[in-house]
Amino acid sequence: MSAAKRVQQWATFARTWHVFDCKWQDPYESANIIKKYLMGLHKPIYHPLNDCGDVVVCINSRNIALRGDDWRQRAYFHHTGYPGGASWTLAWELHNKDPTLIIKKAVYRAMKGNLQRRHTMERLFIYPGEHIPAEVQQNVSNQIRQIRRVPERLDHIPEEEVKNFPKVMDYPENYILK
């Protein structure tokens, strides 16, 4: 085997570490993307019996964005197994308790429920903030593209730019500005 072929062999079967920035991303939409990288569905050599999944590191999971009223409409169900042990936790309550759980459950549910699922989940790292431990960060070599653009706040845009932005609406003639 030539040196080039050997390197190609390594590169094909090595685990790549991807980073995904969850800031302002919908966890349920990004779960479908993260799932593909975790299971190795993005690789041409994919086969369910072939352990070719990658590692995904999610950062900023505290700053995920849910759509519309979902923060108070989505409930997470848990049952302790005892009579009367059912409990429903709203999404915002769950996010208060642990800011990594919503994205974790979303990825878990996006995958098919088989024996492999829990092993695949072991390859998902979620961090609530920007900070990643150094031993994780040194492996990261790729970034997954975000689905939604992070919206820009009006008070973070420089005032000069706001003033010189093309205007659509003009005031009527005898309007007094407040």
Binding site: W24, R67, W71, A91, P151
Partner: peptide, 23 residues
Amino acid sequence: REHKKFNTYFDENTIFMKKIPKP
């Protein structure tokens, strides 16, 4: 407070919906 303190985004398609369907 509560659910209002987390990031929320909206779908513009819901603007002219008579009733927003359940998720």
